[in-house]
Amino acid sequence: MTLKKTLQYGIIAFLIWFVAFRPDAAARVAREIVTFIAQLGVGFGDFFTKVIS
């Protein structure tokens, strides 16, 4: 098994463990990731709006 596959399986196993045994923390992390992505979208939108106008 390659190192890449081993790391992929390890990450998947950790995510399953994290959601199963720490659901509150997993939900908080997911919420923060979604908020970060939304803020990126707003920032890029503002930037392009100001560039165009």
Rank of each mutant, 00 (worst) to 15 (best):
D46A: 04
D24R: 06
P23D: 10
F14Y: 14
D46H: 00
K5Y: 02
I11P: 00
P23L: 08
R28D: 13
I12L: 14
R22M: 12
V29C: 07
R22V: 02
M1Y: 02
G45H: 01
V42L: 06
I12F: 08
V34R: 10
I12Q: 11
F21M: 13
Q39C: 03
A30M: 13
V29E: 04
F48E: 01
Q39Y: 07
A27S: 12
A13L: 06
I52C: 03
T49W: 10
F36C: 07
I11M: 08
V51T: 07
F48M: 02
A30F: 15
T6I: 15
K50H: 06
F18L: 13
A38D: 06
I37G: 05
F47C: 01
F44E: 02
Y9T: 09
F14Q: 04
R22K: 15
A27K: 13
G43D: 09
V19R: 11
I33L: 14
R28H: 12
A30G: 13
M1T: 03
G41T: 07
G45Q: 02
F36K: 13
I11L: 11
I37T: 12
F18H: 14
F44A: 04
K5G: 00
G43Y: 04
Q8A: 14
I52E: 09
W17D: 11
Q8C: 09
D46V: 03
A20F: 05
F14P: 02
R31A: 15
F48V: 04
F44M: 06
P23N: 07
I16G: 02
I52M: 10
L15A: 10
I11Y: 07
A26P: 01
V51K: 13
L15S: 05
A25F: 04
G41I: 07
L7W: 06
A38Q: 10
A25Y: 06
K4Q: 06
K4N: 02
R31W: 10
R31V: 12
W17I: 05
I12H: 09
S53C: 00
T35N: 14
R28I: 13
G10R: 08
R31E: 09
T49S: 12
F48A: 01
F48S: 00
A20I: 03
Y9P: 00
I33V: 15
I52G: 01
F36V: 08
L7C: 09
V34N: 06
I16H: 03
I16F: 07
I37Y: 11
G10Q: 06
F36G: 05
F44W: 05
G10L: 08
R28C: 07
F21K: 14
F44C: 01
A26E: 02
F47R: 04
G41F: 05
T2I: 00
D46M: 04
R28F: 13
R22H: 13
R28L: 15
G43H: 02
M1E: 03
G41R: 08
T6N: 10
T35L: 15
I16A: 05
I33F: 08
